Simulated assay, not measured.
Amino acid sequence: MLSDDSWHMLSQLAAASGDEYIVMGGIEEWSDTWVKLPVDMSSEAYLSVLTKGSDQNEDMITLASRVVWMSPSQKWVIYGSRTSEICVIGFNDDVWRESLKSWQPLNDIVLGWVSVIFYTQTIPPDLQEIFQRHYGEKTWRTTDMFLKEVQMVDGYGEDLQGESTCITEMFLWELGKTFKTNDCQAIFFICGDFGEMKLVKTVEEEPDMLCPKHSYEAEIPFDLPAFQKLQSYEKKVMMAGVLEEAMLFVAEQRNWDKVAVAKAFAKMRQKDYKHQFKAWRPKMSPNFKLKAYPLVELDIYSFRLYLVIEDRKKNVIAKGVVAETETFVEDIAYYMDRLEWLSNDEVVIYTIAHKPSYFSLRVNGSSKFVKQQKENDTQ
């Protein structure tokens, strides 16, 4: 919504409601700022309002953590939150539903959008309950279940799970959050000296500590001695090949979407099994000229976290290594509490430490890790 790409939708919405302009407001605790947006203004003019404000409210819109777009005829209103990175639209007549094809009711797709602001990509239950209570339709219920976790666990007592995390996580990323299974959220593939693939446990059976509720367990043939002789890239290729065969086997057994599985592995091959992703959506600088985001890279022996600054044309202005950890999601998540611009030239990403500490990156490329102490700790 806070980009020129959104203006076409907004102007069409205003035209359909018979309004000659849209009322837009940036809301902060210290002040509210309001502007009128003529329906016939260009997308470039709309972007100018976002980035420069008007004569009376320079930069206020771009700094607002909450933004509202309203129909002066009171036929619709949109509320946007930068914290949740989501917008909610309300209208007074169901006839508007047909003209809002780019919008979704509160469902698993929308919750998937919101989940990307969390490193674990899972919305806390209390926050999800708030969304449902305030924005959910009374008739909306979902009985669908989606695949959220895949692990390759070796039967030899070796560290296959740690080495395979980069492949299993990449597969889930390319597969997406809406792969329906009906009754399964996690699959544990036991890799060992088996003669054939076998689905040994499904959700219908009693869960245990190793195979929790809503999960499957399968045995798959895996030549660990041959695997250990390979170089890193060759190991990725082998693990991806075994995982693809195993996933297609389970999909066949449980009548899942095999085409979606195959497409996910095709994307992995196109990317040469290099898994990099933006952990959060980019955050704009106060002057709206730059954006920053944490970039995570999962490799076979280590995970790396970068802080990246780009301009509006996606040119990388600066990039710094925040941390390199072992292959545990919890380790890399330690360095990813929140991102904040301290000025138009400096952005920081905080750790989850009880004492404030953060990694700082400047536009000129300089970086540093800062550990702060509370006053009573220095006395």
Rank of each mutant, 00 (worst) to 15 (best):
I123M: 10
L106V: 08
D154S: 15
M284W: 14
M336V: 01
V363Q: 15
K319E: 13
P212T: 09
L175A: 14
P225E: 01
E169I: 08
W173L: 08
C191A: 15
C87L: 03
C184Y: 07
E149L: 05
M284D: 02
E44N: 04
V49T: 01
E245H: 10
S102T: 15
L339S: 10
V200F: 03
V153T: 08
S302E: 15
N92Y: 11
I220D: 05
V114R: 06
R66V: 11
V68P: 00
S6V: 06
K180D: 10
K180S: 11
G162Y: 04
I309K: 14
Y306I: 10
G241C: 03
V49C: 01
S164N: 12
H8N: 09
V200N: 02
M268Q: 09
Q12S: 07
N182A: 12
K177T: 06
S164E: 11
L172V: 04
V114F: 07
W7K: 11
Y46V: 06
G176M: 10
D154R: 04
A15R: 14
K180V: 15
K278N: 14
V347K: 13
F288M: 06
W30M: 03
A262F: 03
S366T: 14
E44F: 00
F194C: 01
E196Q: 07
T122Q: 14
I130C: 11
I220C: 12
K291T: 07
E310T: 05
Y335H: 00
M145T: 14
E245C: 11
S302N: 14
G157D: 03
G155Y: 02
P125T: 15
D59P: 00
V67C: 08
L342I: 14
S115C: 00
H134E: 11
K283A: 03
G26N: 00
Y233I: 02
G155W: 00
W140K: 12
S48M: 02
C211T: 15
G26D: 00
N315G: 05
S43V: 12
E28I: 06
V347P: 05
E137M: 05
M247Q: 10
S360I: 11
L50A: 03
V39P: 02
V88C: 12
Q161R: 11
S115W: 03
L147V: 12
W113E: 12
W256S: 13
V347L: 07
L339W: 06
S43M: 07
V88P: 04
A15D: 13
K213V: 12
K291W: 08
Y79K: 15
